[in-house]
Each structure stands twice: as structure tokens, then as C-alpha cells.
Amino acid sequence: MRLAKVQKESYDEKEVLLHLKEIEENIDFKVIHKIYYPYFHFEFNVLTKGLMKKKITSGCVIDGVNGRGALIDCEPGFNQTPIEADQTIMEELTYGNAGEEAKQFMYRSASIKLKSMSVPVLALKKKTFFYRPFYVVDDGDKRSNHLLTIDSITGNFHPI
């Protein structure tokens, strides 16, 4: 067991089950695993060009396994939490290549979202490596055997 920076969860084990019960009352789900998923968080100062010059701060997270980027809506909050090795997915990216992915992702996002064909100037402000907790739940039916992954922050889920 070791201490790691883990994102503060909004749903604990009981709340996750309650949340699923609200969606599907006929199934008794059971949490079978809690998994910690690796991410890199980057925050940039973004200087946009064009008709309206503008300096903003914007952040993204990079998936520590496959390098996929995602914009985020606010700065994540963290706790130092003890985690077990067998609950933890190992990251496959380093800070260096995750940072490069983050820059590329921010350029692409700015170009699409701002419909801008100029290159914004990016200055790295902050970087953090953290884990996000996910739950794996089982519907208890041996024939159907549905497993779901549930995000402990948003309560969103996806079938396995």
C-alpha cells in the first residue's frame, strides 16, 4: 500500500449503488472492485490571437494509459489516499510525453472550439499526476453477468 494523489470522489460505494437503484430499481447491483485510474492534469495560460486578443487559463487531463485528452470544467480537488497496487492501473505515459499530448490537444481544442485558424500561445502553469477512482459493479445475475464501470466523480457509467 502507498499514498497517492487521488481525486476527491463524489460517490462512495453506498451512493453509487443508490444512484444505480434510482436508474434501474429492478436490479440489485454489487460493487466488486474499486479501481484507481491514472491521469495527468495540465493547466495552461492560453494567449489567443486574431480579432480579439485574449489571455485565458484553461486545463485538460490526459489519460495516463492511452494518452487521450479531455477538456475539464474546473480544477480537480485531491486527497492523499492509501491505495493498493492491485487496485491501481499503471500509467504508460511519462510527464514528458503526456505534456506533449496535452499541448497538441489544447491546440486542436482551441482551433475547433474557438473556430480559430491562428496558433494560440500556450504556457504551462501547473501539472499534476493523479488517480481517479472508478467502481466496477455486477448485476448479480449469473446468466446475464453485466458488469459496469462507474465514475466515482460524475456517477456516469459504461458497460464492460
Partner: peptide, 17 residues
């Protein structure tokens, strides 16, 4: 209510589990 945004994480977690 499946969240499509979680597909890639779900795949990695599935392999891990």
C-alpha cells in the same frame, strides 16, 4: 444513460479486471 465519453477508460478497466 450509458456515457459514451467513458468508453476508452471502460475498455482499459475491463482488461485490467
Amino acid at each position: 444513460k450509458i456515457s459514451q465519453d467513458m468508453a476508452s477508460e471502460s475498455k482499459v478497466i475491463s482488461d485490467f479486471v
